[in-house]
Amino acid sequence: MVKARKAAAGAYRRSWLHGAPPPRWVRVLPVLLLVGVGAVALTSSTPLDIGFLLGAVPPLAVLAYGPWATALLGAATIVLLTVPAFHLNRPGDTDLFTLGFVATLSIFVSFVRGRRDAQLDLERTVAETAQRAIVPEVSPRVGPVRCASLYRAAERGTLVGGDFFDVRAGPHGVRAVLGDVQGHGLSAVATVASVLGAFREAVLDDADAESVAARLDRRLVVDSARTEHAELFATAVLLDFAPHGREVRVLACGHPPPALLRGATVHALELDPGPPLGLGLADVMPGTARTVSLMPGDRLVLASDGVLEARDATGTFYPFVERLARMAGTAPDRLPDEIWADLIRFAPRIQDDVTLLILTFDGSGAP
């Protein structure tokens, strides 16, 4: 669901050292230092040689404030040094000139930082808009299927990596795909865009999962031929929900099968997988799609390699099916976040894109 994906996005929020606004303590620090030095100096009965601490106020102000606020804090430090009531050991002209120079330089740096931050914010907004256009948020409900998802790109600061997923309704029923292209990060974004574009066309035109897989395979073969030594390929699992009835056909193309969560039980579907997409073999040796009968409330849980191949400190793979069984009572819209929280507890260092797609069959019709 949209809610699940938005909540998930918060876990990879940028730190203030990577472009996010500074935390409150950074904004408060120069003011606290200024007030603290002044308070100690006023309450001391003898002059104190602590005026040098005020030299840190303007540079600290640069981290969180604009030019005007930085200038105000710089002026306050000079006033504090020169007012006799504070007894800051009578600073000489050199000290005052040095502090004035540092304050002036800090104002200039604050101005430059503000301009650069504004430009970076604009570029980041454009980049995020483009990335969300490639992998948009999945609707909470597509026909008789309720959807929840989570996406974590391995490359810091990006929204899209080498994983892809989508759920679309068409004349042949609801179609879903989840997969992983070769590589991850920004280098894989173009391939993801190409694969998803082909999938969205296939939803409207192709009659079955095998035909969809063949179209995606041809798309990657053509794209790979345009670039020398590209060798583009992707693994994927395709789901084809019948327009009427309670059946779904599942086809794996080099990708692990989904898990079926029914009540308190969970098991991975047994499939006869075909080759990965992009090798030109989808028409020659396609996999065999399995038809699965569904009951209201059944949940199909699709996961990318970032989940299935995550390891703990000892090198043990994440036991996806076993852990999923413990979460049988979790609401479908909360299940992606629950799995993610469990995954990062098990394997704190996640180095691949992580994608989860939860599809819940609901034959009750539109809400």
Rank of each mutant, 00 (worst) to 15 (best):
R5W: 00
H18T: 15
R24P: 01
W25C: 02
V26L: 06
R27A: 15
L29T: 13
P30W: 06
L42H: 07
L42T: 08
P47T: 02
A56N: 04
V57R: 03
P58M: 05
P59M: 07
V62C: 12
A69R: 14
T70P: 07
L73P: 01
G74Q: 05
A75N: 12
V79R: 05
A85V: 13
H87E: 09
H87I: 00
G92A: 10
G92N: 12
D95N: 12
L96Y: 08
T98E: 08
F101D: 09
V102Q: 13
S106F: 04
F108H: 11
F108T: 15
R115D: 14
L120K: 14
E123F: 08
E128G: 00
V138T: 09
G143N: 09
R146Y: 02
A148E: 02
R156T: 15
T158I: 01
T158M: 04
T158N: 03
G161Y: 03
F165V: 00
F165Y: 10
P171I: 01
P171H: 01
P171E: 04
R175Q: 13
D180R: 02
D180N: 10
H184R: 09
V189P: 00
L196A: 02
L196F: 04
F199D: 01
A209F: 03
S211H: 07
V212F: 01
V222I: 15
E228C: 05
F233V: 08
F233Q: 06
F233W: 12
D240C: 09
A242N: 10
G245K: 04
A252T: 03
G254M: 01
L260P: 06
R262V: 12
G263H: 13
L277I: 08
L277S: 03
L279G: 08
L279T: 06
L281R: 06
L281G: 05
V292S: 03
V292H: 02
S293I: 00
L294A: 04
R299A: 04
R299I: 06
R299L: 03
V301W: 01
L302G: 08
A303D: 10
D305M: 06
V307H: 04
R311Q: 14
T314Y: 10
T314D: 14
T316I: 05
T316E: 15
Y318R: 05
P319W: 04
F320E: 08
V321K: 07
D333W: 00
D337F: 00
I339W: 01
A341C: 10
R345Q: 15
F346H: 12
R349W: 10
I358T: 11
T360Y: 04
S364K: 09
G365M: 03
